[in-house]
Amino acid sequence: MLKSRIIPCLDVNDGRVVKGVKFQNLRDAGDPVELSFHYEDQGADELVLLDVTATRQDRIAMLETVEKVRRKLGIPLTVGGGIGSVEDAGRLLNAGADKVSINSAAVRNPDLIHEMSVRFGAQCTVVAIDAKMTDGMFQVLTRSGTTAETLDAVKWSATAQKLGAGEILLTSFDRDGTRSGYDLPMLNAVTEACSLPVIASGGADSVQHMVEAFEHGAHAVLAASIFHDGNMTVAEVKKQLAAKGIEVRA
């Protein structure tokens, strides 16, 4: 049977890993190549690199980072952040990404999901959705959480599936960096509306939070602070998950 996945996430800014709270106040958290290898060694099932920078120069640095990480990494690598076109996605895949995650550009131009899926395959096309609770709905946010869209995250996930996405990376803006656990109602709603694998993201601080996410339909859990701060290793997390009856890769 398919195993529940643990995915450390590295937010990368100008060649360094950073971590913020609610997408703000970025602080340095290490070298992406070293950290990637370190997490693979601990038993990470996959890695996500998110490019959180804005300038063109930093984007070129990101391509170099992806190349360097790929040389050492023997597990799947998803790269996201700032991807605006099929060509951008192709460049990241050529640099060594296995999957590409699109967010703001997909909201602006939903056809991009379809184009990527046809060109590279659904298994390669990840749609990242950032959302927060607003007036009783999960409202989609774009541009690193700075722009509120008139779009319901639950409906958007179903649309993304129809357009050819292969996976949803679902981040709760309300929970990001707060260590208060994943947004379970949002996870429930999205995993019911769409039958793609969903990666839960935002808010993890404990193994219990991850257990809850898996019980609420998550296919994988993404976490950053919990691993970067050295509170727990991926191996410790997986051992405890296994003890709680979640099937993880040995």
Partner: peptide, 25 residues
């Protein structure tokens, strides 16, 4: 679908590798 993630691979006849966990997409 797609199957995305790690699954157990079990050889049913003598083969090139032992049982292990592999990444599928």
């Amino acid at each position: 679908v797609p199957q995305l993630g790690w699954n157990v691979v079990q050889p049913q006849t003598e083969g090139p590798y032992q049982t292990g966990e592999a990444y599928f997409a």
